[in-house]
Computed example of a mutant assay.
Amino acid sequence: MKTKFLFLVLSIFTLSTFSQVDENQTGAWYMYFFNHKFSDSQFGIQGDVQYRAWDLMADQEQLLLRSGLTYTPKNANVMFTLGFANITTGEFGDSNATSNENRIYQEALIPQKIGKRFLLTHRFRYEQRFVDDQDFRTRYRYNLFINVPFNNKSLVPKTIYGAFYNELFINGERIIGNNNNTVELFDRNRTYFGVGYVLNPQIRFQVGYMNQTTNAWSKGQLQFSMHHNF
């Protein structure tokens, strides 16, 4: 009886925490992406550093550090990555409490061009997640990126382009431990529209708006990103 009562209290507390997220408050993500291919090699590195805020800056949602080793087979239109990420997640509002996640991931990145201007990239990612106070978890992700140059036919320097992506997240397991708590099969969806500028062959910038929808809330985020090939 006591165990059932404790589980009920924890469930109510969890729902209360989710409900405190202000869906009308726009957040912001600040992101740096890098990609490097080793000279005369099919191998390279890629990754990103992201600071995500529930508001425009002060209320930390997440700090994400991620990097991986890439491999591009000869005569193949695909790049594979094996990587690792560390994510520190903060609670919405005045609380300074955080939780930590370590993550191993594998992905395949497949570029595609449709017509003269539609530059597509398909990303398939599989994650193995080690989250504080939860059982081992996995997650499947698919992201479709579309870039459309406006004043050129490709992303050459001084090009202004439109950017879109949509990413779907599916949980591999529903029971996550911690008193047998469960999650839904659908984890979240992200839809983004933005505009970018190619500064030079190594650097481009993007700014846009992304809406993220989970089972508990839906929230808008401004996104500012730098994309660096070196």
Score class of each variant (00 low, 15 high):
Leu144Val: 00
Glu167Val: 01
Pro157His: 03
Glu127Ile: 00
Arg125Ser: 09
Phe169Arg: 02
Pro149Ile: 03
Val131Gly: 10
Ile160Tyr: 13
Thr159Asn: 01
Phe145Thr: 00
Val156Gly: 08
Leu185Asp: 13
Arg139Glu: 06
Asn178Gly: 10
Pro149Asn: 06
Gly162Phe: 07
Phe136Arg: 00
Asp132Glu: 07
Asn151Met: 03
Glu173Lys: 03
Asn147Trp: 05
Thr182Asp: 11
Thr138Gly: 07
Thr159Gln: 03
Asn180Val: 10
Ala163Trp: 02
Arg174Gly: 11
Tyr140Lys: 09
Tyr161Ala: 02
Leu185Arg: 09
Phe145Glu: 05
Tyr126Asp: 11
Ile160Lys: 08
Asn147Met: 07
Asn143Gln: 09
Lys158Asn: 13
Asp133Arg: 13
Gly162Ile: 03
Arg174Pro: 15
Glu173Thr: 05
Leu144Cys: 00
Phe124Gln: 04
Thr182Trp: 14
Ile146Val: 09
Asp133Glu: 15
Tyr161Trp: 04
Ile175Lys: 15
Tyr165His: 03
Asn166His: 12
Asn147Cys: 12
Thr159Cys: 13
Pro157Glu: 14
Ile176Cys: 02
Ile160Cys: 09
Glu184His: 07
Asp132Gln: 06
Asn151Lys: 00
Val183Met: 03
Leu168Ala: 04
Ile146Met: 14
Asn166Thr: 06
Lys153Asp: 13
Asn147Pro: 06
Asn143Val: 04
Asn181Cys: 12
Phe124Asn: 04
Gln134Lys: 10
Asn147Phe: 15
Thr138Asp: 05
Glu173Cys: 09
Thr182Lys: 08
Thr182His: 13
Val156Gln: 15
Glu184Trp: 11
Leu144Gly: 00
Gly172His: 03
Asn181Pro: 11
Asn171Leu: 08
Asn179Gly: 14
Asn152Cys: 05
Phe130His: 08
Phe169Cys: 02
Lys153Ala: 14
Val156His: 06
Glu184Lys: 05
Arg188Gln: 09
Ile176Lys: 01
Leu144Phe: 09
Asn147Ser: 15
Glu184Pro: 07
Glu167Met: 04
Tyr126Phe: 11
Phe136Asp: 03
Lys153Pro: 14
Tyr142Gln: 01
Pro149Gln: 11
Asp133Ile: 12
Asn166Ser: 15
